[in-house]
Design a binder for these strands. Structure first.
Lengths: 363, 363
DNA sequence: ATGAAAGCGCTAACAG
DNA sequence: CTGTTAGCGCTTTCAT
């Protein structure tokens, strides 16, 4: 009448013992067939494999992991669940497959507690290592007494943590974007940056500033406005920039989302992106090429980032030498949102596409 | 000189035995402190807890899982890594936290092999259950000899698999979207559907068809064009629809991505969305409210879907009665892309916002 | 090539 | 309240 335990796990799962008994073999032999097939007689192997298949037997991984002291699992820890990080995961999964790892994704919502929880999964033997994609700050982690479990940073270095890192050069990327605008003849270029506390944002600003400085343009009219990497922030920042005098003719947005926000603000103001005002983004997210107009942006090799990170992690886990830092190149992808600087104000282009109220001084 | 094994796991991790020895207790007591603290003397408990904290000791989960025959892990299996599924995962994670489960996400790329691999994780004891978000076809799974591990379908039922399902009523949603357009006075309404082999797409078409049928509109001019749920497909489909005579004045797109594609095609043709042609999407993805113009669409409670799925899964795992089917409501969110049917051709509205070449017959 | 035996680190009766 | 004992299911020497 009373069930002893919850019905949970349906039926009694097959165990190695069962296979062995059925075939009159020892569990060791069955185990070997599954783990080191070369060590066992061809005929026996076939018999075992047959039964295994017929019974759909799967070895219990908790037991195997306990014995082997490893799990074959790698955790990719991302701060937010955004499209931005998805490709890193894809690359990681890919590399994982090649190395016999199961790659799982976890996210922290930037909560250090959650982050710590995932590290404990590793310390607790549930995973063999972690790919850390952007940790708000590593100082929390750095305070650990014991050695950190096998960890590799991807996308950017973790502040205060000396771990192998696979990243991109955000300074160079920022410079690249800015130089593109300069080469198009723009003189008043603004930057909509990410949050100033994020290293990634800082670096992109730095690239912007150094390109401007080297170009000899007047830094006074090359504003930097801070956003938070979201579309609405880009829109708001752009709205503010449109009120400045003199108004910038080109915008380098700290990421694609803000670039799109900026574009929407520009269109809304009745100006034409790529002609009246040029916009270049950063990241080359999927939306960048799909958006209309297609976005000129700095391509970040996300998939590759994840892939390399797992390769390095495998090195760390297996005690091989891991690269301390791997720098992956960015490249500029020129599409439709950038064009030559508009002619001097006196040569007024006839507005073919104006829409809504125009804020331009020529009105 | 020669390292015995790879240096992998740094140092020797602390074990219960160590804690016990250090404190002159038995491992059972330490174990109890960690698992059933109420069974232990307050003073002893404190001593153990202190040392545990000082040593940053974490019990080995492989061992615990092996003993307890459960892992506390739930896998959320999604077909693709798209923003669309992210919210389901969020909801699942949330519910998981409430129930002491660690929720991990995995994706199959619609490859049945990968899907099977995740099921094996469960069969192998590495996870306790699976949330299946849209499986291309369950027939593969249905052919399993043994009972399926604890599984709950989320978002839509898995064909041929009698498992608890938490889903939305796509037929009702499709009807809702279509009726909205009808109520606005549209007479020629087209539907851009998802791939005809996907049940979700079929159901939305069905909702469309039944609303049209009930309305008494002429089905001859209410075309259904098939897309594949991607933005470019929506754009292409819309481009074709624009060439039809008579041209539809309203579009119900099978999802938001295709709706946006359609909008871009419409704008490109020099028509104004929401006035010349109305568009309603489906899903209410994050982009829907951010897009300009903001998209009228059918809201799908993704977070809730994930949440409820995990709650049901917990029931299944613990042998409690699980609901066979839970139907969550959709609701129409009216934003900027839908408006009254344009007046008869003879009453030509003055185009305030036209942009680019106009294809409209009034030119 | 196969079997016997030991044990991975933890939990859960069962005694005391 | 605490210790003793017996495994969980698998891998891996060590024999044979």
């Amino acid at each position: 009448m009373a069930m002893k335990k919850p019905a949970g796990r349906a039926a009694q799962p097959t165990k190695m013992k069962d296979i062995a008994a059925e075939l009159g073999l020892s569990v060791s032999t069955v185990s070997r067939v599954l783990s080191r097939p070369d060590l066992v007689n061809e005929a026996t192997r076939a018999r075992v494999l047959d039964l295994v298949q017929q019974l759909e037997y799967r070895p219990n991984l908790a037991a195997r992991d306990l014995r082997r002291q490893q799990s074959g699992i790698v955790l990719v820890v991302v701060p937010r669940l955004s499209a931005f990080f998805l490709d890193v995961f894809l690359g990681a999964e890919n590399a994982g497959r090649q190395n016999g790892y199961l790659v799982l994704m976890a996210h922290t919502e930037r909560d250090p507690q959650h982050e710590a929880a995932f590290f404990q999964q590793v310390v607790s033997g549930r995973a063999d290592g972690i790919i850390l994609v952007t940790s708000a700050d590593g100082t929390k982690l750095a305070r650990r007494r014991g050695a950190l479990p096998p960890t590799v940073a991807s996308l950017e270095a973790v502040d205060g943590l000396a771990i192998p890192t696979v990243r991109i050069d955000n300074v160079a990327g920022g410079r690249m974007a800015t130089e593109h605008l300069i080469s198009l003849g723009h003189q008043r270029i603004a930057h909509i940056s990410g949050p100033s506390h994020m290293p990634m944002a800082q670096h992109r600003v730095e690239g912007f500033r150094s390109a401007i400085a080297e170009s000899g343009l007047d830094p006074q009219v090359c504003y930097v406005v801070e956003g938070d990497f979201t579309l609405p922030a880009g829109e708001a920042a752009m709205a503010r920039l449109l009120t400045r005098h003199p108004r910038p003719t080109a915008i380098f947005a700290g990421n694609d989302e803000m670039a799109i926000g900026a574009i929407e603000a520009i269109s809304r103001a009745g100006l034409h992106v790529g002609r009246d005002i040029s916009v270049v983004g950063f990241d080359d997210q999927r939306i960048a090429s799909l958006y209309i107009p297609a976005l000129t942006t700095v391509h970040v090799p996300m998939v590759e980032l994840g892939h390399r990170a797992v390769m390095e992690l495998a090195n760390v886990i297996n005690g091989r030498a891991a690269a301390q830092e791997i720098l992956l190149p960015t490249r500029l992808v020129v599409r439709e949102t950038t064009g030559p600087a508009p002619a001097d104000r006196r040569h007024v282009p006839r507005p073919r596409h104006s829409e809504g109220a125009s804020h331009s001084p020529i009105a």
